[in-house]
């Protein structure tokens, strides 16, 4: 769930050409569960909402490579090293499909990357937290990929065809990541006291930021109602967060580590866990750029972009020379 619906949407003014009849016909297609394809007519606001959401999701995949990549050189076994690298590679692949899905809506990857680097476009707040121990790699897989799946499974039925199809592929891989992360946690929890303490520390630090991944409460969520009507979203932020808590608390019990929430309890009557209030100030701070790693993440992405410029230019110059030769 890498799209928290955070950007200023701006005034989404309908173009003059969008008559009430056209909008009604479009909504009728949505209501009939038809998939909207790239060449189909769509309201401008629908297009813009999707570009915002898909590109935020793509950026999150790319920035997310950093906290996980942070442990590649230090992974404690060759098998774990290979699994982690395959995961980081999957995230790069997800970024690639998602940029392609966004491109079907008439924006270029260069534009989207430019918006990320300038700070105009957002990415998931979760990746602004640091991975401080090996257990964090377990916790990120278990909790972050776990939360991502909660959000992305319904996106496989999103009304926009190219996004829905990209999500089917992405979800399969994310569920591998979640299981691998849980397996790291399980190994630590069954290991030495020091390893178990490492696992507990990771859960303590990642729990609340993971709940924040679902975005603001429904009462505060700007885009929810329209996105639900368009069937871009199928469940509200709070519904998904509740589902995540219900599943994850049981998994933590199985691991034998505790969720850092003194208000957490199982409510027999509803069959759900009730949980404490999220620190929304922290959430807003991280979104505003003041999380532990915001600056570092963007600087690293910018540096990679700048350091690679001469390489991309060379590749382009070579391709033009070859094209000129072929034409001659």
């Amino acid at each position: 769930m890498y799209t928290q619906g955070l950007d200023q949407a701006g005034k989404e003014q309908r173009e003059v050409a969008e008559t009430a009849d056209m909008l009604a016909a479009f909504q009728a297609r949505i209501d009939a569960e038809e998939k909207i394809e790239a060449k189909d007519w769509m309201p401008e606001a629908y297009r813009r909402t999707l570009i915002r959401q898909i590109s935020q999701h793509a950026h999150s995949e790319i920035i997310g490579m950093q906290p996980e990549g942070n442990w590649l050189t230090r992974a404690p076994s060759l098998k774990r090293k290979a699994i982690l690298l395959a995961k980081v590679q999957d995230e790069a692949g997800h970024g690639l499909y998602l940029y392609s899905a966004a491109e079907t809506l008439g924006v270029s990857r260069d534009q989207l990357v430019g918006d990320l680097l300038s700070g105009k476009a957002k990415y998931s707040s979760i990746f602004n937290y640091p991975t401080l121990s090996w257990a964090d790699i377990g916790a990120v897989g278990w909790l972050v990929d776990g939360a991502a799946i909660m959000n992305q499974i319904p996106l496989c039925r999103c009304s926009y065809g190219p996004y829905a199809r990209a999500m089917v592929r992405v979800c399969k891989e994310e569920s591998f990541h979640q299981r691998q992360g849980f397996e790291i946690m399980l190994t630590l929890c069954r290991g030495t006291d020091e390893q178990k303490a490492m696992a507990q520390d990771a859960l303590s630090r990642w729990w609340w930021p993971s709940l924040m991944m679902f975005g603001p409460n429904d009462s505060e969520s700007k885009h929810s109602a329209q996105s639900m009507a368009w069937k871009i979203k199928r469940f509200t932020n709070d519904e998904l967060r509740q589902k995540f808590v219900d599943v994850t608390v049981q998994q933590a019990e199985y691991l034998g580590i505790s969720v850092p929430d003194k208000d957490l309890r199982f409510d027999e009557s509803s069959g759900h866990h009730t949980f404490g209030e999220i620190d929304w100030q922290e959430f807003m701070d991280v979104i505003a750029g003041n999380g532990p790693c915001n600056k570092q993440r963007l600087e690293k992405r910018q540096a990679a972009h700048d350091d690679g410029a001469w390489v991309r230019e060379a590749a382009q110059a070579y391709a033009s020379k070859q094209a000129a030769l072929a034409a001659a």
Partner: peptide, 18 residues
């Protein structure tokens, strides 16, 4: 592994990791 997430383009990132 030291240059993962710092390759000049996304396609190269995938090849490099492979």
């Amino acid at each position: 592994l030291e240059t993962v997430a710092a390759e000049p383009e996304l396609e190269e990132e995938l090849a490099h990791a492979n």
